[in-house]
Design a binder for these strands. Structure first.
Lengths: 114, 114
DNA sequence: CTGGATCCCTATCGATACTG
DNA sequence: CAGTATCGATAGGGATCCAG
């Protein structure tokens, strides 16, 4: 490990940025938890507006992390679920949750007032 | 696993967003690769401006991922390196690199034209 | 060398209103 | 229910100049 490989750096960056976008992580987490309907996801992620949800969903689709399934009922039902790579991504991100618990134990409970 | 835990969702989101910010991942990767000087990091991450580097560095410091070490030479030398949590974060992010290799093999070499 | 300050531009966000 | 269209506000980003 000596000099930075531009390609790897850029790839690393771009992937992190995809899920790092404002609400992406929350949306993925919601879907991973079986929130399939548009309104379910909207309800699960606090503070997320319809517009942003739709936008993020399209980005996530473009990134092949989420698939959109349209069911021809009345009214039309739309269900979202993770793709294989999406599931794998969430699995890969699990250690990150452990990292948070290890290094960010109490977000609001200040133990050292600065 | 039924309803979304707001706290966990928010924590997950916030952590991902920290490193998801525009250049953070590249900067962390550069420092993890022993790019300690300001100019070294700037040179390692292609396209990154001084202003943004300084800004990201401050954010990373605030997040306790990076420490700033000032050495009183002439001129003043400043070295950056990862904290314990920063090192651990990079370790935790390694599976993500593997994920990229697994699902994003060729960024530009299109094999399935859509 | 290591940044801080400023200007300006663009992308992005959030709220509201509207449609199939 | 599942979005889209539009709008104003804000924040992020790039370039440039300047200072310790």
């Amino acid at each position: 490990m000596q000099s930075i490989d531009d390609a790897e750096c850029r790839r690393f960056t771009s992937t992190v940025e995809v899920i790092g976008r404002r609400w992406s992580a929350g949306i993925l987490l919601a879907i991973a938890r079986d929130a399939a309907r548009f309104s379910e996801i909207a309800g699960a992620v606090d503070g997320l507006s319809d517009r942003l949800l739709a936008q993020r969903l399209r980005e996530l689709e473009a990134d092949d992390l989420v698939v959109r399934e349209v069911i021809a009922t009345t009214p039309v039902q739309v269900r979202y679920h993770l793709t294989a790579s999406g599931v794998d991504l969430m699995r890969v991100l699990e250690p990150l949750v452990e990292w948070e618990q290890r290094w960010r134990p109490s977000p609001a409970a200040g133990e050292s007032a600065e």
